[in-house]
Design a protein around this nucleic acid. Structure first.
Lengths: 212, 212
DNA sequence: CTGGTATGTCTACGACTGTAGACATGACCA
DNA sequence: TGGTCATGTCTACAGTCGTAGACATACCAG
């Protein structure tokens, strides 16, 4: 191909549709993650990508469609959750404690979700993105019955930790010892991974609460 | 007193500073909870209170100060968490499952927090509100060492459930059976209420992870 | 009854938003 | 080398935002 596919150089990008589209999309993910859907403007997204605001709408149609593609891209590539069910809670807890530590890179799809959820349209887009990518995948991994609600409960826990530790930044949790946090999260996630037999009459779940 | 303290009638409110201030504040809580800090405009808050936008700034100084008072009011009155430590997880789990059910009134400080957290200034205000009201209170109730981070972890869990069940509205969690959800939440909260011995050298916490 | 003041409204400003149409220019093909 | 279309920019338009100052009115004291 004779087309210029130079994406490594930092110089002014020559006219290249796919590279420009990519730059806009990456810039959008970064901006939406940092400012949220309402807080990030198309001019800012375009500026960080080195183009004009109008080009964004030419490539993506509208801000909303740009957000939809950004969400799809942000949630799709990385395996947010460990694949192996046996060590699922262990690896997930460790990764979550690491990623939410005060000296992390602050670029994560959960942050994108939390800071954009206020907008109803954005929330709807996020819902489909969560379902299609992590939710469905996680439901397949979780053993036992009623995997879907437990998977979403696990996502709730993860999102809550992201919220309080990085967005609200409550001091005791933000400065919590990483190993201690990992252990606590592990214990919590174990409860969700080990499926209860769904006995609606009694409360005798194995390894569950000790009856008062 | 000869002052007109008519707050029950629905007719046009006579000139009454305190009643007007109250109406604006209640309208602000409702609007911020529904639309978030960025999404709610002062004209909308004022209109719902039956006054003009400028009066809002005259009474509260600015939108940001109005939000601060709204947060303080929203988190202060109700005892968000049960007072009795023995039945803390039980009552908290039950209340959370009830309040996040699809047919609830959708007016809760956690919704206000979730939909306003995207704005950095709003997040800061929320952090102090959370600390002063629920966080400190909950830390005093929780038994064992390291109560503060575990209290905030409990708040993370609650906020996460609110997010996924009501804001993002993931279907499996939004439509989850209320009793089953209550049981799951109870099991999770029991882990947080029962303090680990905080062994920072080893990992041999009872009921904790099995070392790989 | 009459002034004074607290209470509430009106008009408007500058900044910002998402988006549309007209225009310019660079890159590739013949 | 010249033409042509994709690629990118410029100007602009309604609309909304938070906020400020000037103005109007209702209420209470004398």
């Amino acid at each position: 191909m004779t087309v210029d596919t130079d994406e490594s150089g930092v110089g002014p990008r020559r006219r290249n549709a796919s590279a420009t589209r990519e730059a806009i999309l990456n810039s959008a993910i970064e901006a939406f993650t940092r400012l949220g859907y309402d807080g990030a403007g198309v001019r800012e997204v375009a500026g960080a990508a080195g183009v004009t605001a109008m080009l964004v709408n030419r490539y993506f149609g509208s801000k909303e469609q740009l957000f939809a593609e950004a969400v799809d891209r942000a949630f799709a590539p990385r395996t947010v959750i460990s694949n192996d069910p046996s060590e699922l809670s262990e690896r997930t807890a460790t990764r979550l404690a690491e990623r939410t530590s005060p000296d992390a890179d602050d670029l994560d799809p959960f942050l994108l979700m939390l800071r954009s959820a206020a907008n109803p349209r954005a929330a709807e887009i996020i819902r489909t993105g969560i379902e299609n990518h992590v939710g469905r995948h996680l439901t397949d991994i979780l053993p036992g019955p009623d995997a879907a609600p437990r998977a979403e409960l696990l996502l709730s826990l993860i999102a809550g930790v992201w919220l309080m530790r990085k967005v609200i930044a409550t001091p005791a949790l933000a400065g919590m010892d990483q190993d201690a946090l990992t252990r606590q999260l592990h214990d919590l996630m174990e409860v969700l991974v080990n499926a209860p037999p769904a006995t609606s009459d009694g409360e005798a779940a194995p390894g569950a609460i000790s009856p008062s």
